[in-house]
Computed example of a mutant assay.
Amino acid sequence: MWQTDVLQEKVLETLDRQTDIYQYSLRSMAPHPNTDYVVLRSWRNDASKGFSVLVCVSVDQADSPALAAVRGVVLESHYLLESCGTGRSRLTHICRVDLK
């Protein structure tokens, strides 16, 4: 895992080949409590244009047990990965999160 603050993560439900409901929890620095999130995430690839997109937004998943003390809300999260030539890419991330 490249992100050391991730405590747990799991796919709760796969909706199709490019969409799932995903839950993860993040460690917070004291005195803040650890936070978990349940998001609907969907991704698209267009190899001919050289980009990939990942979009996430929080969903209410009543049967998902809390992994941390607080459930945060991802209002919007967009990742755009663009190819910039051989071995190079550009990543743009736009995100609004309510940490509670």
Score class of each variant (00 low, 15 high):
V6L: 12
V6G: 00
L7A: 04
E9N: 13
K10D: 10
K10T: 10
V11Q: 03
V11A: 07
L12N: 00
L12A: 04
E13R: 07
E13T: 01
E13N: 00
T14V: 14
L15E: 07
D16C: 12
D16E: 09
R17G: 12
Q18L: 05
Q18T: 15
Q18M: 09
Q18K: 09
T19H: 13
T19Q: 11
D20G: 08
I21T: 01
I21G: 04
I21N: 02
Y22R: 10
Q23F: 04
Q23E: 07
Y24W: 11
Y24A: 04
Y24F: 15
L26E: 04
L26F: 00
R27C: 04
R27K: 15
R27Y: 06
R27L: 11
R27E: 10
S28N: 10
M29G: 05
M29E: 11
M29D: 12
A30F: 09
A30S: 09
P31I: 02
P33L: 06
P33R: 09
N34G: 06
N34I: 05
N34T: 07
T35E: 05
T35C: 12
Y37G: 01
V38A: 00
V38L: 00
V38R: 01
V39E: 04
V39C: 11
R41H: 05
R41A: 00
W43K: 01
W43H: 11
W43E: 01
R44T: 08
N45D: 09
D46G: 02
A47K: 08
S48M: 10
K49G: 03
G50Y: 03
G50T: 02
S52R: 08
S52T: 05
V53S: 08
V53F: 07
L54T: 02
L54K: 06
V55S: 10
C56Q: 15
V57M: 13
V57R: 15
V57C: 09
S58V: 09
D60Y: 08
Q61K: 13
Q61M: 14
Q61N: 08
A62Y: 07
P65Y: 03
P65A: 06
A66P: 10
L67C: 07
A68S: 10
A68N: 02
A69Y: 02
V70L: 06
R71W: 06
R71P: 12
R71M: 06
R71G: 09
V73S: 10
V73K: 14
E76S: 15
E76K: 13
S77Y: 14
H78A: 08
Y79S: 05
Y79A: 06
L80I: 13
L80T: 13
L81Q: 12
L81M: 15
E82V: 05
